[in-house]
Amino acid sequence: MTHTKPKLAWLGAGLMGNPMAGRLLAAGYPVRVWNRTRAKAEALTSQGATVADTPADAVTGSDIVFTMLSDAEAVEAALSGVALPGKTLVQMSTIGPGENRRLAGRIEEAGGAYLEAPVLGSIPEAKSGKLIIMAGGSEATFAEVKPILACLGPEPRLIGSVGEASALKLALNQLIASLTVAFSTSLGFVEENGVDVNSFMEVLRQSALYAPTFDKKLSKMLEHDYRNPNFPTEHLIKDIDLFKREARSLDTQALEVLLQLYGRAQARHEREDYSCVYDAVTKRC
């Protein structure tokens, strides 16, 4: 028996959304794509996508709707006035646990199903289908969507109810922000004192302190070239702020320092990679 693939609507064809939608098209799914800047959506037509003029147009006739947008405000704007009864919304943007729960409540009250599915990884992983996908929602909704998510990441994982996956995602992004500042501080100290950077990295790699992200960002920091970002600084700032607002019972004073450093770096390196925080740590900006 031939099984017809579900029709998909994809809202958001930016740095991550474009390659992710491309993988679904390559897997044979019919995809209607909408993006606020139409040209970014049109870049997917060569792969078989249909470009929609509005989110409502993209959703019409679809079975499952995906959102991969910058923040909760963008998600709310895209879904405003869009009818979703009988459809499944897979919300993949990085937004707060509370924001996901509120949105899930509205979708389910209107007769739709909801799954949050934030991802860990950047453009290379999006292109290769190696994203780490964390889902929050019911087991039934996850089972329905899992074969599609498997086109984007090898092992989609159901973390728990709505809000738990987005909390995990923010916890990981906070770690990215903190690790990058910590590494920048050590690297800057090593350079300031004339220690050979290769020796520093060789010892670091042999220790329990090492994280692969250090090597991924090292050349950008040493060359002070943060163009062609996999993860723009402005997005990480948004996530640090989200974490700070959602973490009501924690002492988040350290995050104030992170926000100051990344903010200073962003002012100098607009829309560039978040590793530019090295220039803020070393007082180049």
Rank of each mutant, 00 (worst) to 15 (best):
A140W: 01
L261N: 07
E144F: 05
A167K: 11
G28K: 15
A113M: 11
L15C: 06
V90P: 06
E234W: 03
G96I: 08
N18H: 10
K169C: 00
K244H: 09
A165I: 05
L170W: 01
V90C: 02
M68I: 13
D241K: 06
E223G: 03
P229L: 09
R23H: 13
R157I: 01
G111M: 07
G86K: 02
A143T: 13
T180Q: 14
V119W: 13
M134N: 01
A140S: 05
G160Y: 10
D63G: 06
E272N: 04
A83H: 14
G48L: 15
T45N: 04
D273T: 13
G28D: 08
P118G: 06
Y114W: 03
E164C: 04
G86V: 14
I237A: 10
V75G: 13
A78E: 13
G86F: 11
D71K: 01
T141L: 13
A171K: 01
P118M: 12
G188P: 01
S219G: 01
I107W: 11
T282R: 01
G22V: 02
L175Q: 08
R268N: 04
A41V: 06
I132G: 00
D71G: 01
A104V: 01
K283F: 03
L204A: 08
K220W: 08
V190M: 09
P118K: 09
S249N: 08
K216Q: 12
P232N: 01
A58L: 08
R284D: 03
S249F: 14
N198F: 10
A49I: 12
G86S: 10
H269T: 06
Y262K: 07
P156L: 11
D225I: 09
A104K: 07
W10F: 15
N228D: 15
R23C: 04
A56P: 03
F183L: 00
Y274P: 02
G48M: 15
P85R: 02
K146P: 00
L8V: 02
R271Y: 12
S275Y: 13
A254P: 01
L168R: 05
R284T: 04
E155K: 15
R264I: 05
S207V: 11
A39I: 11
L255V: 00
S184K: 12
I123C: 07
S207W: 09
S128I: 12
L222F: 02
E191C: 03
E272Y: 05
N230Y: 08
A113V: 03
